[in-house]
Design a binder for these strands. Structure first.
Lengths: 194, 194
DNA sequence: CGTCTATTTGAATGTACTCAAAAGCGGTGG
DNA sequence: CCACCGCTTTTGAGTACATTCAAATAGACG
């Protein structure tokens, strides 16, 4: 079944009866994205949460100089959306793009709201999901203020070991908050030393 | 009634029947903090969410050089906690301190969990609260990556106009992510120009 | 293969930091 | 109520981490 990864993800936090599973599944849509395909563009209203089952997405913003800044990666078993836009239903600031051929499961904002009412457990599920996301984001703010680029890179390597070999350096540099040039020097420095 | 600010805050997102209000209020405790008093210390397990009714708190971390970094301010009508520690019930990294004489309302983790079960609406309330917090934190990450210190300062002034005159510059500098010395220069630069 | 993009390397520059010291301000006690 | 003490803010000079711009090299995809 194509929804197994998602159902398993959910079962870590709440238990669904089989009829509840059916209702939930009825709300889901599958979608495939080609490498470099845009899932959500800056300025659009975000109408879906996406759960990645294969491949990888990235969410990024573009600043006034045209430089990109990666807010988040979404490898398999992760959710991604422009949370600001999804909540407010106003035009968003994120672009979400496939870094490779990717498969996702979609849950629309409207259906998510229905879920909250029909199966209140989902309110709990998404609360917990967002709590964890909040904690991770707060930690990242602290790290950005407290640590050097090299320390942030080491933390990234520990926290996302699987992403290190798959992602282009450019993208990791952008997530960590340095230029690709500096990231390259940093890495060759780390290799020579420890 | 001392809980009016909090009840009013909640009523923006969910409606409580009067008996539900009573249950909720029965879980709350009031507490007063003197200026510079520590509400939660680094390394402690965070057992309470705090809602500020008067004064102001700040949550900060201390890095390996002994420098402080402010993660959040909590003026009246705001919640504050060490979310990581509150969720995991492990020792936290935040210190939460009163910047002035402050009054807060406490809700314990245990009672919050009870609320979720007895009055499921609260699951929704806190989900929404945390969603908004997540969006604000994500925006801050983006701003830290995209903007200069001066631009971040201007945004801070717009977003928290009331805090500008009450907070010591040192604290704002720490929130924005610059040294007090640089912050001072930056400000005098801004005053001379526009 | 050829083209396009990613990565590396070099040199000059800038933004923000460090250390040091002076000036300002606020709270507290005599 | 004033004087003092401690903390915050300002100012100065030198420095560092990271950026910019440019060019060469390497890699990946069609």
């Amino acid at each position: 079944m194509p929804f197994n990864l998602l159902l398993n993800n959910i079962s870590k936090f709440i238990h669904l009866e089989s009829n509840e599973q059916e209702i939930f599944i009825s709300y889901l849509k599958q979608k495939k994205l080609k490498r470099k395909q845009i899932f959500l563009d800056e300025g659009e209203v975000c109408k879906y949460s996406a759960f990645v089952t294969e491949g990888c997405l990235r969410g990024y913003t573009v600043d006034k100089n045209g430089d990109e800044h990666v807010l988040s990666f979404a490898p398999p078993d992760w959710w991604i959306a422009d949370m600001y836009s999804l909540i407010s239903q106003k035009p968003g600031i994120l672009t979400i793009e496939a870094l490779e051929d990717t498969e996702i499961i979609l849950l629309s904002k409207a259906d998510q709201e229905k879920l909250y009412i029909e199966i209140p457990k989902f309110e709990r599920f998404f609360r917990i999901l967002i709590e964890n996301s909040l904690v991770a984001n707060q930690q990242r703010i602290i790290d950005n203020m407290s640590l050097t680029a090299e320390e942030r890179y080491k933390i990234f390597c520990k926290r996302y070991p699987t992403l290190i070999d798959t992602l282009p350096q450019k993208q990791i540099a952008s997530y960590i908050g340095v230029t690709p040039e500096f990231f390259s020097r940093m890495r060759s420095g780390l290799l020579r030393r420890g």
